[in-house]
Computed example of a mutant assay.
Amino acid sequence: MSSHRSHRRPPRPGTGWPARVTVLTAAASAVAALTSSMAAAEPDEGKATSSGTAGARVDRLYEQAERATDKYNGAAERVTTLRKRVEQLQDEAARGQAKVNRLRNALGSLAGAQYRSGAVDPTVALILSSDPDGYLDRAATLDRVGDRQRGQLREFESARRALEQRRTEAAGTLERLGTQRAELLRHKKSVQAKLRSARRLLDRLTPDERAERDRASRGVPRDEAPGGAEASSGRASSALAAAQRAVGSPYGWGQAGPSSFDCSGLTQWAYGQAGTSIPRTSQAQRSAGRHVPLSQARPGDLVIYRADASHVAMYAGNGQVVHAPQPGAQVRYDPVGMMPVSAVVRP
Rank of each mutant, 00 (worst) to 15 (best):
L201V: 08
P207H: 06
R148L: 14
R148I: 11
A170E: 09
W17V: 06
G46A: 08
L202Q: 12
A94F: 14
P279K: 05
M339I: 11
P18S: 13
L202F: 00
R332M: 13
H187K: 04
T173W: 05
R215S: 07
D301W: 00
D137W: 12
A65N: 08
G317N: 01
Y333W: 02
Q192M: 02
R144D: 14
A274N: 07
A48Y: 05
G252V: 03
A297R: 11
F156M: 11
H311W: 14
G328M: 04
T123L: 11
G289H: 13
E45M: 00
M314R: 07
L110A: 15
G146Y: 02
R85L: 06
D223T: 10
L201E: 13
G227C: 06
D214C: 04
T80Y: 00
W269F: 12
G96I: 03
D137K: 15
T80P: 01
G134T: 05
D203E: 10
V344R: 12
V31C: 07
A27M: 08
R67T: 15
S51G: 06
R176Y: 03
T168G: 15
V220M: 03
R57F: 09
G52P: 08
R298G: 00
R186C: 01
A75Y: 11
A41V: 09
Y72K: 03
T81L: 01
L126H: 05
Q165K: 12
R148D: 12
L184Q: 08
D203A: 12
T49P: 06
D208I: 06
